[in-house]
């Protein structure tokens, strides 16, 4: 779906320009600027996260994509504008209430030394528990479900430090799932994973979105995987959104060179049919046949 920027900002409905379907948006930004000290990193961004879709934010290093995600997760106070959750300013909502709606997995989270998988995943239940409240059946069930969905049930008693990178990332996602939120924000969930584990983690997130309807927003580095897994792709440069919409519309040769400052060829991914970016460096020139194939694809 592509978002019509002319949509009235006061409504929470988005009319899809192509299909005319109306989808909701629970998470949005309005004129949002974020920064550290005096440096503005996200610059007057207004956008909406489509419900029930996988949104992926891409862009060059330091373009503000992680900062935008942190802003959406109310980890940063806006310089201007605001983040809206269900139409209300996210900073005006009690943080525990936000935590029951919106889950966050930061980049490279560090597990306490010696913590077991089940203990770590159980900590995702914190927003549902009071200070004096005991661990209950609902918590137990949520943890069991999260372990099962992520395929980590058989790791439950293992110590997190001893797991492989891919297993560990699935455990962290399980922790975020135990939080049982409708929205899930992930900051580069595939960093430091080899390509097989990257695909494994992204498949898992796709499944979650497909089976539970969880709205997923993530920052990804890998453009081709982003194009493959995103329903809604957001391209950022210099703290602004330069394009958003279906990957097919967002990823063009001109835009990739604008956003990443790199010459490339965009062809069709032979597996998924999504755009596939083939970078062109200084040392390789286009082979005529490839250009022909790419052009006809």
């Amino acid at each position: 779906m592509s978002i019509d920027p002319a949509t009235d900002a006061s409504t929470d409905r988005i009319t899809d320009r192509v299909t005319g379907r109306v989808t909701g948006t629970r998470l949005a930004t309005h004129d949002l600027s974020l920064g550290y000290d005096d440096r503005t990193v996200v610059d007057h961004v207004t956008t909406r996260v489509p419900d029930g879709a996988v949104t992926v934010v891409v862009g060059a290093n330091a373009c503000g994509k992680s900062t935008l995600l942190r802003g959406l997760a109310r980890l940063l106070r806006p310089g201007t504008g605001q983040v809206l959750l269900d139409g209300k300013s996210i900073h005006g909502i009690p943080t525990k209430e936000v935590a029951r709606t919106l889950g966050l997995l930061p980049q490279n989270p560090v597990a306490p030394k010696g913590v077991t998988v089940v203990d770590l995943v159980g900590r995702g239940r914190a927003p549902h528990q009071g200070r004096f409240q005991r661990w209950g059946a609902a918590d137990e069930a949520a943890v069991a479900r999260a372990l099962e969905v992520t395929g980590t049930l058989d790791l439950a008693d293992r110590v997190v430090d001893e797991l492989s990178g891919g297993q560990r990332q699935r455990v962290w996602i399980a922790m975020a799932l135990a939080q049982e939120t409708d929205l899930l924000l992930l900051d580069e969930p595939t960093t430091y994973l080899d390509v097989a584990h990257q695909v494994e983690v992204l498949d898992l997130l796709h499944d979650l979105n497909a089976t539970r309807g969880t709205t997923v927003v993530m920052v990804l580095h890998e453009l081709n995987l982003a194009a493959r897994y995103a329903d809604h792709l957001v391209a950022m440069a210099d703290g602004r959104i330069v394009a958003e919409g279906p990957p097919r519309e967002v990823i063009t040769q001109e835009r990739v060179s604008e956003v990443f400052g790199m010459q490339c060829l965009v062809v069709e991914d032979p597996v998924s049919g999504t755009p596939l970016v083939v970078p062109i460096g200084r040392h390789h020139s286009r082979r005529p046949t490839l250009v022909a194939n790419g052009a006809t694809a």
Binding site: R100, P109, G124, A126, R131
Partner: peptide, 23 residues
């Protein structure tokens, strides 16, 4: 003693603690 849950969540780092609803 009633702060155990808070400390368990704080052990995950400031960002996650906030994400898990701790003020």
């Amino acid at each position: 003693l009633t702060g155990a849950r808070l400390l368990d969540v704080l052990a995950l780092g400031d960002d996650l603690a906030r994400g898990l609803g701790r003020r």
